[in-house]
Computed example of a mutant assay.
Amino acid sequence: MRSFILFTVVAFLIDQISKYVVIHAMELARIRSIDVLPPLLNFRYGENRGINFGLFGGGSEASRWILIALALLICTAVTIWLMRSAQPRLAQISGGLLVGGAMANVLDRLIYGYVLDFLNMSCCTIKNPFVFNVADIFIFAGALGLILFSGDGKTAPRRPRKKPK
């Protein structure tokens, strides 16, 4: 469980620090666009009021609170599941990445009313119009890791020790 907690905190902090540095310190919110390694990596200011890629982003106050509640419900379910089952370390780490990223986006919704996004990646003459953030990377990696690395959740049966003769 220690790995889960550590990676939850690390993912949360990395996301929040990256948003502060890029959006506030580098003033992306004001200048709206910074080409870092064009076209592969660009910073583009975005306010995501929906789920991934702005889907269901009507921007209503009710949808904001529904998305917060849904994220908290999923984080709680993943945490309880990992606490109650014997999962390998990579599954614990994956769960931590997922929960840390989701909680970072929840904090954004609580503070700003939307999730701050700033990463934009394009390649091979395909211009990607979508922006995302570091938390989204952690959420995706964590979900994929849980699929790949979670076990059946049962502890291995212990063999009775043989008594010395």
Rank of each mutant, 00 (worst) to 15 (best):
P129H: 12
L82T: 13
I74M: 06
L70V: 14
W65P: 04
I74Q: 01
I74A: 15
S122Q: 11
A135L: 06
T76H: 02
F56G: 09
C123H: 13
E47F: 05
T125K: 11
G95S: 09
N128G: 12
G54P: 04
N48E: 00
G57T: 09
V115S: 09
L90F: 07
R64V: 14
F132D: 01
L98S: 02
C75Y: 00
C75P: 00
R109F: 00
A69T: 15
I51V: 15
T76F: 00
N105R: 04
V134G: 07
I74C: 04
G57P: 02
A77L: 15
I111F: 01
G100C: 01
I51C: 01
R64C: 11
V99I: 03
W81S: 08
L73S: 13
A104W: 04
G113T: 12
I68P: 05
R84C: 00
F132L: 07
S94N: 11
R89S: 10
S60F: 12
S94P: 11
N52K: 11
A91C: 13
D108M: 03
A104N: 06
S94M: 05
G101P: 00
S94C: 08
A69R: 07
C124D: 05
M121F: 08
G46K: 03
N105M: 10
C75T: 10
G95K: 10
V131T: 14
I68Y: 08
A104C: 07
R109E: 13
A86G: 12
I126H: 11
I74V: 13
V78L: 05
L107P: 01
G100W: 02
L55K: 10
V115N: 08
N133W: 07
I68V: 15
L67N: 03
G95N: 12
L119S: 06
S122A: 15
V78R: 05
I111A: 12
A71S: 10
R64P: 09
I51E: 02
A135W: 03
L70Q: 03
F56W: 01
S60V: 11
I111T: 15
S60G: 09
V106F: 00
G58R: 10
A102E: 02
M83D: 07
